[in-house]
Amino acid sequence: MEIDPFIFRLSIFILSIFIGYYVVWSVTPSLHTPLMSVTNAISSVIIVGAIIAGLSGESQSIFNNSSIFGFLAILLAAINIFGGFLVTQRMLAMYKKKKKNK
C-alpha cells in the first residue's frame, strides 16, 4: 500500500517542531529580541506561496482576482523579509564584548 504524501509532510512538520524546541532553548536570553525579529523574517518565506499566486493569472490580465491577492502578499512579505533581516543585523551588530583595560 502506498503512503499518502501528506504523511511525509506531517513527519517533517513534527520533527521540525522538535528541532525548533531544542534549538530555541539553546538561544541565550539576551538575544531573545533578535530571535523574535529573525523568526519574523524567516516566516515570511510564505512569499513563495505569494509568488506562485501572483504568477497564476492568465497572461493577458495579470491583475485578475486571485493574482492581485498574490501581489499584495508579495508586498507584505517583502517588507517583512527586508525589515526583519536588516533590523536583526542592526541589533546583532551592537552586541559587543568588553574591550580590554576599560
Partner: peptide
C-alpha cells in the same frame, strides 16, 4: 515586531484567499 507579525498574518490570509479562488495554480 508586533507590526511585522501582523504582516505575516495578513500575507498568509492573502495567499490562502488566492489559493481558494484559483486552486488550479497550486
Amino acid at each position: 515586531v508586533a507590526g511585522f507579525h501582523s504582516l505575516v498574518g495578513l500575507a498568509a490570509v492573502f495567499v490562502a484567499i488566492s489559493a481558494f479562488l484559483n486552486p488550479e495554480a497550486f
